[in-house]
Design a protein around this nucleic acid. Sequence first.
DNA 1: GCCGTTTTCGGCCCGACTGTTTTCAGTCG
Length: 586
Amino acid sequence: MNKTAIAAVLTDIGTLLELKGENPFKTRAYLAGARIVESLPEAELTQRIESGTLEEVKGIGEALAQKITELHTTGQLGFYEKLKESIPAGLIEILSIPGIGPKKIRALNEKLGIDSIAKLLQAGLDGQIAALDGFGEKSQEKILEGIRNREKYGRRHLWFEAFAVAEPILAGLRALPQVERAEHAGSLRRKMETVGDLDFLVATTEPAPIVAWFVAQTGVKEVTAQGETKASVRLTSGIQADLRLVPPEQFVFALHHFTGSKDHNVAMRQRALTQGLSMSEWGLVPAAGEGTAKQKAEDRGRMTDITTEEQLFKQLGLAFIPPELREGLGEIEVAEKDALPRLLEESDIRGVFHNHTTASDGHNTLEEMTAAAQALGLEYLGIADHSKSSVQARGLTEERLLAQIGEIQQLNASGKFKCHVFTGTECDILPDGRLDFGDDVRAALDYVVVSVHSSFRQEREVMTKRIIKAIESPHVTMLGHLTGRLLLEREGYDVDVEKVIDAAIANRVIIELNASPWRLDLDWRHWRKAAERGLLTSINPDAHDTAQLELFRVGVGAARKGWLTKGNVLNTKTLAQVKQWLAARR
DNA sequence: GCCGTTTTCGGCCCGACTGTTTTCAGTCG
């Protein structure tokens, strides 16, 4: 078992022990152990296990060393298996409801026998929760609200996770000899931040073996539909996947149809009608006449010279509209004037800001992060560990930050990496809008990200003033995750986004597009207008380990949905340009 | 569960907020 898998098991054990009501320091020891294992280089971990020197690592004692060794050599851990058996799986699920933690779960379990979300819901509706010692009406309402949110979002999935599931399926389809073309469609192709189900579209004249492969893939939990032109499966990840099979000459029309949002498709069909054409998933045919669209397409022939989406749009007098823009938000009017922006590309990104190291809550060291950034071909890497008020994330004190600055300067001077490292901080915006580090400390850095990490539930006006006060402070480069939302889990803070954008523009402060798939904050829906008004952004991975550096690609997808171009994004600048830009801002 | 010129037990450990309380427990980041 590798270190990531071992760390995951240790984290799991920590969670399970928490639910058991174990000594909190014991659970913390497991969580700390997980982080330590994660931060050790793989080779060192192996070497220490083989030589029996694991216990020399601070934070790892006899018990953890024994368990890590067992996991590493056998891939299993008896203690963990027994522990899992002793706790109903439903309790872990309840932990995902905001405002309810291990202690409350234990109380609910012991006093009301609750061991699943279904039972929790029933108890709440019956008013049993409010009657419990230590609970009240508000707790009960909050729990019910949490369950409702879960149901509301439960059927959707993060784009990033859906994409990870879809990629191998698409590759598998394309590898089949009967498949002429294959694409995914739907909200996944439009790069919506969350996705309901997966849509696959295949061009073929021989559908049967493709359907057979699709429903028999590993990862299929149940087959909900299976026919000649369509199949649906529920995957073990909980995602539903639909496959549609069409003759090759229909492919492009079907691809457009199953990609566009409803609003986009309606607008496109209306446009086709003004030109005497009828448009559908079956084809583009003269509008006059009787019968269904399918019959018309087959009887009178679709425009078979159209084989690409570019040609389809051109036929309707439009410039090619990238899938990300097909939301029915005015893209057709702009495409008619051939005035669509040239959207940001992944290859435009030259460096990444806002990344964490082991100095705070990251899992990799400064050097590991730098090496990884360089391996991605990035010219620069911006470090931004947490500030001291984020105690839970081991935020840096002034002294530790100054030491880190020295370390980074030394690393840059050593010439060990071509990738340049910028010194920075993710400085907490305190509840009153003051910043966690003083002016002099911030002035010593190349750049400063300011973010809210506490007092989320302030009144809208208070929160808005708080963030604007931070933006107006000297030596502030960019605002981190403006709303603090966690997709499918938690709404953002109640804040007047427009006012914050105004303040950012007025003070020449960047608002980041946090590229973490769980955040994608600020939301793409704000960017088109904000960028037109002159707001600059930075696509920030907020990486907590080396693998997450690459999440900037997810952010590029969101930026494209927000109509952003290379010119709207700080980290498309070359190293020399960024140095100059940052220097001019100090 | 880890740690220790406090050495085998007792401490580890941050602060705000919320909702439940009447002085505080639980949750969150």
